[in-house]
């Protein structure tokens, strides 16, 4: 397991779009290390031939037929939005790409 360096914490924070202070970086590095170590303990307890479980119940092929169901109205859709304009959700400009 790679070490949880302060830089890695900052990188994770930027991926999560949250601002962190230097003090928080140190604290999170410590806490996240503990979590990663705990997971590593589980890893070491199972042999390599155990398939990963993504779902607790062994099921497959649960499908929906391709039939239209009612959608929300535009008013309903936008009712929880912090801001809206011209029938659309209005969000802060993001200097990134689509």
């Amino acid at each position: 397991m790679s070490e949880l360096t302060p830089d890695l914490v900052r990188h994770l924070a930027s991926l999560a779009r949250i601002q962190v202070t230097d003090a928080e970086v140190d604290r999170f590095a410590e806490q996240l290390s503990l979590i990663v170590e705990s997971v590593a303990t589980v890893n070491s307890a199972v042999a390599g031939d155990v398939p990963a479980t993504s779902h607790p119940i062994p099921m497959a092929n649960v499908f929906r037929e391709d039939l239209v169901e009612p959608s929300l109205t535009q008013e309903q859709a936008l009712s929880g939005a912090a801001d809206s304009d011209q029938g659309r959700f209005r969000v802060a400009a993001i200097l990134d790409e689509e």
């Binding site: 959700f89 209005r90 969000v91 990134d96």
Partner: peptide, 11 residues
């Protein structure tokens, strides 16, 4: 995108 003040989203 550059210079945009805000963005509108249609889902």
């Amino acid at each position: 995108i550059q210079g945009a003040e805000y963005s509108l989203v249609d889902y």
